[in-house]
Amino acid sequence: MNLVLRIWRQASAEVEGRFEDYPVSGISTDYSFLEVLDRINEDLVSQNQEPVAYEMDCREGICGSCSLMINGTPHGPRPATTTCQLYMRHFHDGQTITVEPWLSRATPVIKDLVVDRSALDRIMQSAGYISVHTGEAPDANTIPVSKSRADKAFVAASCIGCGACIAACPNASAMLFVAAKVTHLSLLPQGEPERSHRVRAMVVAMDREGFGNCSNHYECAKACPKSIPVSLIARLNREFQHAGLLGHEYGGPIHHAAHEE
């Protein structure tokens, strides 16, 4: 295959970016999308030019590092697929493919296609866990959990934190991301004691980071490489309202930890 990749280049957050065209030839349909970027980068280095900065790590669709807006769609054209698992057989010879970073106010560009997704970590740090000290857990089979509940919790827990949902949303909302964690932990009996506090704290943290609100476009679920269902956002809203009705059972302000470099 012969292709042209039209890639967003931006040296840093402080300077303006621009698109550059990179023709590449002799690509087999068995190449992954990232292997094409590797080829372009090796060529650039051979010509003493700086390669395109982009993020990836596991290349098996689970670490959530890879991103990329490919022809306007997060993770490219194939449903339920991360960019690292996208193969060139899904493109056609001669195609021009536009590659951009995931932009939102809460996830600014660092360089080229690399964005800062630390806002997602800060939301998780606010309350995205069950508070249990090492050593205090009872035997694992003490509390039975119905299989259907455990399976539903697993589906929600399979979020990889890539941020495609935010990139796809016209409001740059992180509600699918937050809903996934809230659902995972609220479905399990172990998550019950902190259920109200958790949802309130996470929603406050989400708002503080500058993410938008959901206005039912459902683009998030369509872009999600792990097929997290959009119905979880309804559950998030329900959990939030429920927590509001119950009041501030934990009391005190929801404070926030510092995040080091």
């Binding site: 866990y129 249990v132 090492t134 205090e136 857990a137 694992a140 119905s146 455990a150 919790a153």
Partner: peptide, 11 residues
């Protein structure tokens, strides 16, 4: 420990 943290093991 992991079950108490909410790890959704197969059941």
């Amino acid at each position: 420990q992991c079950v108490a943290q909410g790890v959704p093991f197969a059941r």
